[in-house]
Design a protein around this nucleic acid. Sequence first.
DNA 1: AACCAGGAGAGAG
DNA 2: CTCTCTCATGGT
Length: 216
Amino acid sequence: MDFRRLSDLLNKHYGDLHWWPAETPEEVVIGAILTQNTSWSNVEKAILNLKKISVFSLSDIISQDPERIRMAIRPSGFYNQKTERLISVARNIEDHGGLEGLKKMPDQDLSRFLLSLKGVGRETGESIMIYALGRKKFVVDKYTLRIFSRTGITDDGTSMPQKLKDDIEDSMSISELNNFHGALVNLGKDFCRTKPTCNTCPIMAECDYAKDLTLP
DNA sequence: AACCAGGAGAGAG
DNA sequence: CTCTCTCATGGT
């Protein structure tokens, strides 16, 4: 199966998600850092705690006492480094005119800027680009790699060929990319886990991994 | 009761 | 450039 077919199958099952659960673009940035190697349910608790101490934006992060931020985001794990990362990322973005300032940058400059920030790697940068700034980016996360390799779109499950990524970004619209990644995450959570539940998976019929399971 | 979760950075080789 | 280690809480 190829990525278009996978996208179609996922759309049929999940519909339009208009994804990334956040109230504002700045909350996307905060959530993107907090969710690093952490389940979203724990991130929700951390974000709720931040709101309880009136932290809703990047400027709130800069002005709030770091110790209170540390306590607030504790449920999301790695809270010491995540506190540092939140503050330095917020400072750097605000120094460049905030998200409004970043909107003026061309894709490549923006990408380089985000990746230069301590605490922003590939996935976090791509997430910020599409979900907070509306750029055409295909977010490659652990679920994406796993699902692409199990369905036979890729073969190793540890990397995304640059040509394939370019192909996807060139041939899909922003809202399709948005929806595609959201659906991949949902499928990853619902069925395609480390220990998958293929028997009820909506794409079982066309997945290489599930086919292998039914062989004698 | 291990194992995993919407990673990233630093260090080693 | 590709491994390996660390960071840490909460659900299954």
